[in-house]
Design a protein around this nucleic acid. Structure first.
Lengths: 148, 148
DNA sequence: CGTCAATACGTGTATACACACTTTTCGACC
DNA sequence: GGTCGAAAAGTGTGTATACACGTATTGACG
């Protein structure tokens, strides 16, 4: 046994957090590979997709929908705004800002969705379709299990 | 229906990648909250933990063990080296560099492991102990399902 | 009308992550 | 011994992520 700092020997294989993070890294690379031709990362694709689904809305509301930190989203939209995929304008309130998809954003999203489909198909061909469904359910439970 | 860019309406709820990423964000926050008093992030804890387990080794080998990009690890060790938790020295080969835990790193790791345990317990109390075991297995399968 | 707590955002800082490209070094082969 | 490909690592760049803190605006209440 010897010089171990503590009982951490098995931490890496027992840690739920590290397990999920590692999986996230790997699956992100797979999806990003497929989305690369569109110039979007999977996170950016998700922002556009939510925007397409929910329509124009504020940063806070969008962040709540994605389940992401508000300040993270604020930074994430910058490259998308720069590339003209979405537009940020004033909201009804003097405090809020309204984000909406541009025509170009909609077009890019349409193209990207076919690439996303291929990534999804590749993953599910290997991991299993039923297993993938169960995976998503499990991930929802993980999120639900964490009290803010 | 109407103005959808495509069939992306359900993408956010069907995407395996986004599901895993969202879970990773949430669970990371939980573990980082617990580790905060030690000044370590869960990723840093993982580096120290692997190092404790495997002994001094090269950047490439450590990256392979953690299943992380080599360049990512190269950046990740910088704050740890700066804070004196690990030391980077020359390896047996003129190309390789040897990373090893310092006494201070070992001590910090020992303290951190008790905080990690609390995070692990909190999560498993909510998510379930058996479910957690299954979760880790599932995550391993996800990683295995992705061809490099 | 003035105060004040709550709301919605932005900024500074720091880490996490990885691709493309470059540099250094090693080893093998002629 | 010189050449050259492979291996190990570093650098540049850009996104992802979130906490602590600061700013501006709103709405309620006295």
């Amino acid at each position: 046994m010897a010089n171990r700092a503590s009982d951490t020997a098995m931490t890496e294989t027992q840690c739920n957090c590290l397990a999920v993070r590692r999986a996230a890294r790997q699956i992100t690379q797979l999806y990003d590979r497929h989305l690369a031709p569109t110039g979007l990362r999977v996170t950016q694709y998700s922002v556009l997709s939510w925007l397409d689904r929910l329509g124009p809305l504020s940063i806070g509301d969008l962040a709540a929908a994605i389940v992401i930190d508000r300040t993270t989203l604020g930074r994430a939209i910058q490259p998308l705004e720069r590339d003209g995929l979405l537009a940020v304008g004033p909201g009804p309130d003097g405090r809020t800002r309204c984000i909406k998809l541009t025509a170009r954003g909609r077009a890019t999203l349409a193209t990207a969705s076919t690439h996303w489909r291929k990534a999804q198909d590749e993953f599910e061909a290997s991991f299993g379709k039923g297993a993938s469904q169960a995976l998503r359910t499990t991930m929802r439970h993980v999120v639900a299990a964490i009290r803010p």
